[in-house]
Write a protein that binds this DNA or RNA. Structure first.
Length: 112
DNA sequence: TGGGTGACTAAGT
DNA sequence: CACTTAGCCACCC
């Protein structure tokens, strides 16, 4: 009984959008990041918002901090926690240590 | 079955 | 550079 995989609503898709998003997020190596749009694009969709929603729902079990906005800002109301991960993983950051930091997408953006 | 929703994005002010 | 507006898309109840 695959209780650990009952995320799908049995729509006929063996790999629901959710599962695929989580797989991509999990595939992001430390020190690198992807934008929500990039994750969706990797799946052939534009549901950037859905990626964020999935992270909010299931992200707690995945490295959600490696997924950031297209502007380089971390998820709203989570940037303080994310910063701790970025510094631990060595993710390129901009802002010189200010509270209003942002991610250096130019260097950290990861494309599979 | 359908509606409401959001850890988004791009473009405009 | 920061804030606002409108468009999007798949998930949850």
């Amino acid at each position: 009984m695959p209780s650990s995989s009952d995320r799908r609503r049995d729509s006929g898709d063996q790999e629901p959008f959710v599962e695929r998003v989580l797989s991509v997020v999990e595939s992001i190596p430390p020190g690198r990041v992807m934008t929500y749009g990039d994750v969706a694009a990797t799946l052939g969709s534009r549901a950037a918002r859905m990626v964020g929603q999935i992270m909010a729902y299931y992200g707690s079990d995945y490295p959600w901090w490696r997924v950031v906005r297209a502007s380089g800002h971390p998820p709203v109301d989570h940037e303080h926690i994310a910063l701790q991960y970025y510094r631990a993983e060595g993710t390129p950051l901009l802002g010189g240590g200010n509270v209003a930091y942002r991610i250096d997408l130019r260097a950290a953006r990861y494309t599979p």
